[in-house]
Amino acid sequence: MTGWLLPFLFGAAAGVLSAWGIGGGTLLLLCMTLLLGVDQAEAQGINLLFFLPTAGVSLLFHKKNGYLDKGVAKAAILPGTLCALAAALFSSLIDRDIFRKPFGVFLLLASASILLDKRVSQ
């Protein structure tokens, strides 16, 4: 039972954040790898699968509430999907650890740019 319960609860909590687009996947990855001892590669795969129903159901609400910019989404999806496919195939051929540090630096800069954004919040 507990084998099911914790993944379900973590999935639900991460699902709320995923629906808001603010890091549900990161939360779920952390829960899986740090708290549940799931292997990193398997956790990444589960994380990807997790996003499909979670994002799908949240998008129904976002569309209804007028938050979707369809023009932007349509323009971004094709190049994004092609690049995702290419990068995923490429990453299976190499040691992905070499990207850890550059990605970490990018995350640091990204968080700084958001926290230092002076735009007035509504």
């Binding site: 999935g11 699902g15 629906a19 990444q44 589960i46 979670t54």
Partner: peptide, 22 residues
């Protein structure tokens, strides 16, 4: 790389959380 059975509880939770978040 992904055993589907292991993923199911996360997906079920994701559906609930995704709807609530939406």
């Amino acid at each position: 790389a992904v055993p589907l059975a292991d993923a199911l509880p996360y997906l079920a939770g994701g559906l609930v959380g995704g709807a609530a978040g939406g």
